[in-house]
């Protein structure tokens, strides 16, 4: 029989590992599906919105950057280059963005019963993984349309980097969702931060076309390193800068552990503040 003790101190292990997550996989699944469904339930185009948004963004950016600023990504058509960057970036961006309000937006669930609250941002991030899968399909269609050779071996190798990206996104999501309970303008702030972050990451340009000083930023920008590696794998089948990726691994563990710790620390206040 499970004894649920309130007010007792957590062990070091419980603090770092979300082992209760495993027990709540079912709930995470249900919440994630619900998240995707709510988003599209009463909309005309439904899930197609996940495709329309990056498509329009890719088209307008490719017009601005290619036709006006003459950016190139030879030998890859710029639209395909951009769309692949955006597909991976959007997963991070939308994951963090929707997770930020995942705790505050589910007040009615919080009032009901205890369940580990980490489940909420986790589900929000995983829900965006479903959107991401649709985006990936569209990306592959564009590869076919523009006859860009796809490196299948590289495509498979993306999986571990994507996993890293999921974990990193969750770490950031824990921080922003918990802080958003205390300070509601976190959701405003995060939109701004994400925008700056996107331009600091090789989403719309190739790292080699950036000035050398800026390339240093990628050392401390794990998501940039991941997107860069993911794109390299798609186009060339190998990672150009594996060193950046190792830094990203380190950052991911740090951010995840710190995020979880912060979340657990603020968690007892949720019911009181909301």
């Amino acid at each position: 029989m499970a004894v649920a003790q309130v007010g007792e101190r957590l062990t070091v292990l419980e603090r770092v590992l979300p082992h209760d997550l495993l027990r709540w996989v079912e709930l995470i699944r249900n919440l994630a599906v619900r998240d995707v469904e709510t988003r599209y339930k009463h909309s005309l185009l439904g899930l197609y919105w996940t495709l329309i948004n990056p498509l329009v963004t890719a088209l307008i950016f490719s017009f601005v950057f290619q036709d006006i600023f003459h950016a190139t990504s030879k030998p890859i058509p710029y639209v395909v280059f951009l769309l692949s960057g955006l597909t991976f970036w959007n997963f991070f961006n939308n994951g963090v963005y929707s997770a930020t309000s995942s705790v505050t937006g589910n007040a009615q669930l919080l009032a009901k019963l205890y369940f580990p609250r980490v489940v909420l941002p986790t589900a929000a991030v995983l829900a965006r993984l479903i959107d991401f899968a649709f985006g990936l399909v569209i990306l592959l269609v564009f590869f076919a349309l523009y006859r860009v050779p796809l490196h299948w071996a590289g495509f498979i190798l993306i999986a571990p980097i994507l996993l890293l990206q999921v974990v990193f996104t969750m770490g950031i999501a824990f921080i922003t969702s918990a802080l958003n309970v205390l300070y509601r303008d976190m959701s405003q702030l995060i939109g701004l931060l994400l925008m700056v972050w996107m331009y600091m990451s090789p989403v719309m340009f190739h790292p080699s076309s950036a000035p050398a000083e800026l390339r240093l930023v990628f050392y401390i920008n794990p998501i940039g390193a991941m997107i860069s590696a993911e794109k390299d794998l798609l186009f060339t089948g190998q990672v150009t800068h594996p060193l950046y990726l190792w830094f990203a691994v380190l950052w991911t563990f740090l951010v995840y552990a710190a995020g979880l710790r912060l979340f657990k620390r603020i968690e007892p206040l949720f019911a009181e503040v909301m």
Partner: peptide
């Protein structure tokens, strides 16, 4: 229901 923590004292639900 464990949605809130007690300031003092303890609670056990088995």
């Amino acid at each position: 229901t464990r949605t809130m923590y007690p300031t003092q004292g303890s609670l056990a639900m088995r």
